[in-house]
Design a binder for these strands. Structure first.
Lengths: 155, 155
DNA sequence: ATGCTGAGTCTGGAATCCCAACTCAGATGC
DNA sequence: GCATCTGAGTTGGGATTCCAGACTCAGCAT
C-alpha cells in the first residue's frame, strides 16, 4: 500500500505544524527560549501586531507549550509573564534544526548571526539525525517510512 | 549586551520560518519527501485549495527548495512534477524534529502513526542535538547563544 | 467532433492580519 | 484626592490571504 493512501492529518508532522505553522509562532517560541518573557518585549522585538500576539500566546498556552505565570516585580502590581513548559522546551531540537538550515542555506552577508554553545564545554550545538543503531543519517542516506498502529487510511 | 538588543530578522530561525512558516509549506515538503510529485496528488491528499498550492509551490521553487521538472509519461503529453532540490532534502532534519515532537506530545489515540527507519539497518531514525565535542544535549542541558559577525543590532 | 484529464486560473465570500486608537488597573506624583 | 504613567491587552476598520467551486486550456482517446 502506498504511503499516499494514509490520512495526511494522522501524521505527527501535520499535528505539530498545525500549532507552529504560522508566520509568528516559531519566532515567539524562539524569543521565549532566549529568555524574553513579557508581552510588550515580545511585541516590540518581533514587530508583531498586538492582537495577533495575544492570540498566538493564548494558543501556545492552550497547547501546553507556554505557561502564563503571574509574578510581581518589586513595588509594581501583579503582572503575567510567559515561559516555556517542558513540552515547549522540547521544541529546542526543532528550533536548532531550523537555525542550522538557515545558517547553511540563508546565511546572510556576514555569515550566521548566532552560534548556540554547550554551556559546559563551549562547543557548538547542532541538530542531526541518527538511527537507533548509532549510524549517522546524512542528507543522501536512504530512509523509509513505515506505518504503525496509529496510521489511518485516508478517506 | 542582552540578546534582545539584536535584530530579530537577522536570525536564521526567522529566515527559515519566513519560508516554511505557514499552514501548508511544511506539509507540502513532507509529501515531497514521501515521493509525491504531482500537483493534483498534493492537492487532494492535503485538501489544500488549488490556488494556494500553486502559490506555495511557486514560493518553494523561488526559494530553491523545490524544482519544477518537465517529464512525459508514456503516451501522455508533457507534464511537470515537483521534486526537492538538495537544499530541500536538507530539511529532513527539521521534518524529523517536528515528527519526533509530535510523536511525544501529540501521539493520537493509537500511538505514533509512522516510524522512519534507516534503510540499511532498519533502526528508527530520530533527531537530536549534540555539541561539536560529542556531548548529547538533552532538554534540560544548558546552552547559550553567542552573537557572531552576522548579528545586527536592532533599530 | 466530443470527451477526458492534469494543471492550473478566476471569482466571490470568509477568515486573518495589520495598524492605530482605546480601555483598564494599579503605582506614582503633586 | 486627582491626574498621569505603564504594561497588557481589546476593539474597529481596511488590506491580505484563504477557501470552494467553476472555468480554462492542451493534448490524448474514441
Amino acid at each position: 500500500m502506498p504511503l499516499t493512501d494514509y490520512d495526511s492529518a494522522a501524521c505527527s508532522i501535520a499535528r505539530t505544524a498545525q500549532i507552529l505553522g504560522d508566520r509568528w509562532s516559531v519566532l515567539v517560541v524562539r524569543n521565549l527560549f532566549n529568555g524574553m518573557r513579557r508581552f510588550d518585549a515580545l511585541q516590540q522585538h518581533l514587530g508583531i501586531a498586538r492582537d495577533v500576539l495575544t492570540k498566538r500566546l493564548a494558543l501556545l498556552v492552550d497547547e501546553g507549550i507556554v505557561e502564563r505565570r503571574p509574578y510581581q516585580p518589586e513595588g509594581e502590581r501583579l503582572r503575567h509573564e510567559y515561559v516555556l513548559t517542558p513540552a515547549g522546551r522540547d521544541l529546542r531540537t526543532v528550533m536548532v534544526a531550523l537555525m542550522d538550515w538557515g545558517d547553511v542555506h540563508r546565511p546572510g552577508q556576514d555569515g550566521p548571526p548566532m552560534s548556540l554553545r554547550h554551556r559546559d564545554c563551549g562547543a557548538e550545538i547542532h541538530a542531526h539525525l541518527t538511527c537507533a543503531a548509532g549510524h549517522e543519517i546524512e542528507t543522501a542516506t536512504r530512509a523509509e517510512l513505515v506505518p504503525l498502529a496509529g496510521a489511518k487510511l485516508a478517506g
